[in-house]
């Protein structure tokens, strides 16, 4: 077929296009995660990263920048467009270029867009998703705005599929919401891995990734470490891998009350989000990272 005709066909039918580009995936470099994702995150797609509380924004941005850095290395595109909804900018503050540089991302490659409202923010994201020079477009929103609904996310998803840039939604202090995103990650902070040279100090940034929703693969929860030096994700513990099914936070049945009430939510729900854990601060022993526990 004539290449031009092929490109027109691709443009006309997003499904055919998707089939053609299905191979382009971004492996995270961790066997367990990549198995669950069937080879990695689809590059030309929409993904959502969620920080349940405002203070998790650091960890969520940690995952996001890790993905972007790996994406830049893999695809050779080296620009990031960061669109901030005005509501989100107040709470989180500003991106700190020195911090970005230490994390492994050249701040000169970041372009910040600060629209007046969410509608123009969506327009800007939509427009940017078409650009073949961008590695990724990030839309930073606060909470669960009505305007960012299934239709709007579906639109972003289609744009990402045709344009080839990864579109990421960074949802700050927002709840779970059904969107058209390929995957949805919940990211929470986790005590850092001890540093070998300076055990009393703070080690490499560690966070717990919970894959809450994934269109193609399985869900699960994994503690991961970002290594800014080698620009790779590493497993968050020395144990090789814990099956996500086992790492489900199940309160132990006590001896005198064997028939305790089931936790709220159906069985389906639990299976879809096996990594759900007790709210932060509820654990009396101070060990919040359930995924850290061995079987």
């Amino acid at each position: 077929m004539h290449p031009r005709a092929a490109s027109i066909l691709d443009r006309l039918s997003p499904h055919a296009h998707r089939a053609g580009k299905a191979a382009a995936r971004l492996p995270l470099g961790l066997a367990a995660l990549d198995t669950s994702l069937e080879g990695g995150l689809t590059i030309a797609a929409l993904h959502e990263v969620r920080a349940p509380a405002a203070r998790d924004i650091g960890a969520a941005a940690g995952l996001l920048f890790g993905l972007v850095i790996r994406l830049m290395a893999q695809t050779g595109r080296d620009r990031l467009l960061w669109v901030t909804d005005p509501a989100a900018g107040m709470d989180a503050g500003l991106l700190y270029p020195d911090g970005l540089a230490q994390y492994g991302l050249d701040p000169a490659r970041v372009t910040l867009v600060t629209p007046v409202d969410l509608q123009t923010a969506l327009w800007a994201t939509d427009e940017a998703a078409r650009c073949p020079d961008l590695a990724a477009v990030v839309l930073h929103v606060q909470g669960n705005p009505k305007r960012l609904d299934r239709v709007a996310t579906r639109r972003l998803m289609l744009r990402a599929q045709t344009g080839g840039a990864m579109v990421l939604i960074l949802r700050q202090s927002g709840g779970e919401e059904a969107t058209a995103a390929h995957t949805r990650w919940r990211v929470e902070a986790c005590p850092s891995a001890p540093d070998r040279i300076f055990p009393a100090g703070i080690g490499l940034p560690r966070m717990v990734l919970t894959l809450e929703r994934c269109r193609t693969g399985r869900t699960g929860a994994w503690p991961v470490i970002w290594n800014p030096k080698h620009k790779v994700f590493e497993h968050g513990q020395t144990e090789p891998h814990i099956d996500p099914q086992i790492s489900v936070d199940r309160p132990a049945a006590s001896a005198h009350r064997p028939d305790r009430a089931d936790p709220l939510g159906g069985v389906m729900d639990l299976r879809r989000t096996p990594g759900r854990r007790a709210p932060v601060g509820a654990g009396a022993d101070g060990q919040e990272c359930t995924a850290d526990r061995g079987p």
Binding site: M90, G93, L94, Y96, Y103, G104, D106, P107, A108, K229
Partner: peptide
């Protein structure tokens, strides 16, 4: 960006030498 002349962009902190993480990703307003 339109007034960002070439060469005035922020320079990354020593690309070859990776510094320990001492600066946060987010700076409060």
């Amino acid at each position: 960006v339109t007034r960002l002349a070439a060469g005035t962009a922020i320079s990354p902190v020593g690309a070859a030498r990776v510094p320990p993480v001492t600066r946060p990703l987010w700076l409060l307003r």
